[in-house]
Every structure is written in structure tokens, then in C-alpha cells.
Amino acid sequence: MPDHYHNKLVFVGDMGAGKTTAVRSISDVEPVSTEMPMSVGERTDTKSTTTVALDYSTVELDDGELLHIYGVPGQKYLDFMWPMVCEGALGIIVLVNAGHPDKLATTESLLNEFSRMAPSANFAIGVTHADLADDFSLIEFRNALLRAGFKLPIMKVDARRPEQVDFLIKALLAYSYAGSQLQIA
């Protein structure tokens, strides 16, 4: 089947943001994952493994082409794989754990790094685990990003719920499409 350069969707985020779960929840096939047990000190009640390289899966489009889906760790020491995954990406979704103490700085850093590597890609942000972070306000988080110059789709998402991950992808696609129709770089 023919394959297309632009048919690539990337999830990026720190450890525990939900990348592996998000990729799995929308995949047509069993994802290829590189999960390893976490060290004892880093384990939590809900997470005992972490992705050490990347997650990869596919979704088949109507004409038989594949949409390639990647989950990429946001840790800096793994940044060597960022450029090859992001090249030509249709869109990049930054996942951030609402309970992460440095979520704003981490998100800003990822948006800056990835928009430099993939200048034509559009971005969206999915905030995970918001139900476990009582003091988290999506509006405050959004407004802080806005003040930092990032105006983009952002929403809470439960990575285990395919319909919520779908909705986030739809928001990214709609935003990308509108930008392309208006010829906004």
C-alpha cells in the first residue's frame, strides 16, 4: 500500500503522562512498546513500568494508507530520537500529568523544543490525571501557557478512554485544518 510522509502523529510527554496508554487506546494493532520495570524508588501504586525508547503503532486509513503513531519520552536524555520521529509529523500532542510539580515548565520546554524540530506541525495539549489533582485548574494552566505565547487546543483527557483521546486528536486536526485553509504558518 502507498504510504504518505505526512501521516504521522506524535505523543510526547514526561514519565507518567500517559503516552503508552494513549497510543494503545487508539491503535488498530498491538503497539510496539519498549516498556521496562521502573526502579523501586520511582514506582507508584498505578505505574510500575516506563517507556525507555518509544511506542509505535498504526491506524489504517480508508484508502489503506497507515497513520503512524509514536509515543516519545520527553526526558532530555532521550532527545536523540526526537528529530527523526517528528520530521514531517502531521501533529504533535503534548501530554502532561496534572499532578506533575513542574508541569508548566516541562510543557513550555517540550513545546519550544518540538516546534523548533517540526516547524510545520501543529500542537495540542492533553492534561492527564486531572481527576487526581484536586487543585489543578485547566483554565489557569491554559492562561499561563497563553502568557508564554502558546495559543493552542488544550483539554483534560483520560488516556484510558479512547473517545477522549479521539476528541483530542480531532481538536488537533481541526486546528491544523483551519490553519492550512487560512494559510497560517
Binding site: N7, L67, S176, Q183
Partner: peptide, 23 residues
């Protein structure tokens, strides 16, 4: 509204439409 004119923009639009349809 302005139609996408460059080849790159048209290719991007085509890809978005295909993926959007799938979702």
C-alpha cells in the same frame, strides 16, 4: 477563507482530511 495554494499546503490539507475522516 483562502484556498491552500502551495503544493506542500495542499499535501498537508489532503493528509489532514484523510486522517480526520478516519477519526
Amino acid at each position: 477563507a483562502k484556498p491552500a495554494t502551495s503544493n506542500a499546503a495542499a499535501a498537508l490539507t489532503g493528509s489532514i482530511l484523510k486522517v480526520a475522516k478516519r477519526f
